[in-house]
């Protein structure tokens, strides 16, 4: 879905973007949304935030409560469908809109879902491939030691792998110190982590072991769900790693405390 856009003609001068903040960024980490706005503006976009937004419906949907998800999906579609582009700073929420709304809905709503899906993008793929944010060729090599966690939905539903890494390199001079087993789930899985906490904890430990093995000081990624989970487990296990959303790193926001750290 996203690939077809890569071959299109250069984007018009000023792209009008609606930001879908996602409920986790809205509630737990507004800095992610502010960083996203800053990056989109830096890429030359005109950003609006539709004020009636709440949640994309993943919690109910993943639990199989399709009846509760349908009206929520319709609400999101009606809210966002007039935008030129919709950008989401989360792989799983973008995946929900792009892949699962069309599966969930039927008839006219399915058509509207497909139209919205065609112009909805996860933040890093949008910055890199659609808005083509200008690389900072003179960005000096960063002293930050960073590793990247691939969110499963971004990786497998949206084909996002290189984009955030290239952005970190081109905008901040950060070379990602790669994780072993980077394509394996971190154990979050939405309600899974609370329904089957012990199994989830083991999976997160595996992920953390790989994170620690890289020697990186900062773990970043494109999805707050995974990051809240990994940060929470690291803190419980006394493992020292700073967890920050990739949007925050990309716009150079190091003043905000890392996830789960006090001031």
């Amino acid at each position: 879905m996203n690939e077809q856009h890569q071959d299109q003609a250069p984007p018009p001068q000023r792209m009008r973007v609606s930001l879908f903040v996602t409920c986790l960024a809205d509630l737990f980490r507004p800095s992610v949304a502010f960083a996203s706005i800053k990056l989109l503006e830096q890429a030359g976009c005109e950003v609006t935030v539709p004020l009636q937004q709440t949640c994309c419906g993943q919690p109910a949907y993943n639990s199989g409560d399709y009846e509760s998800t349908v009206p929520l999906a319709q609400q999101v579609i009606a809210l966002l469908e007039t935008a030129d582009y919709v950008v989401v700073p989360s792989g799983s929420c973008a995946g929900m809109i792009c892949h699962h709304y069309p599966k969930l809905l039927q008839g006219e709503w399915r058509d509207r879902a497909l139209k919205l899906a065609a112009k909805t993008f996860e933040l890093t793929i949008f910055l890199k491939d659609i808005a083509r944010i200008k690389p900072q060729f003179d960005a000096p090599p960063s002293t930050l030691s960073v590793t990247y966690h691939d969110n499963c939905a971004a990786l497998r539903e949206l084909n996002i792998k290189e984009q955030p890494r290239q952005l970190l390199q081109q905008l901040c001079g950060i070379k990602v110190n790669e994780l072993q087993q980077s394509e394996v789930c971190c154990g979050f899985g939405g309600t899974f982590c609370a329904k089957m906490p012990e199994i989830s904890g083991k999976m997160t430990d595996d992920k953390l072991n790989h994170v620690i093995a890289t020697g990186a000081k900062i773990l970043t990624g494109g999805d707050l769900g995974c990051l809240l989970n990994i940060a929470g487990r690291a803190q419980r296990q006394g493992k020292e790693i700073e967890v920050r959303h990739v949007a925050e790193l990309l716009c150079g926001d190091m003043d905000t405390s890392p996830i789960g750290e006090g001031r």
């Binding site: 509630l27 989830s200 997160t204 929470g232 487990r233 996830i259 789960g260």
Partner: peptide, 8 residues
């Protein structure tokens, strides 16, 4: 299993 990060 994990700490709950406090919101901003």
């Amino acid at each position: 299993q994990r700490d709950f990060p406090a919101p901003q």
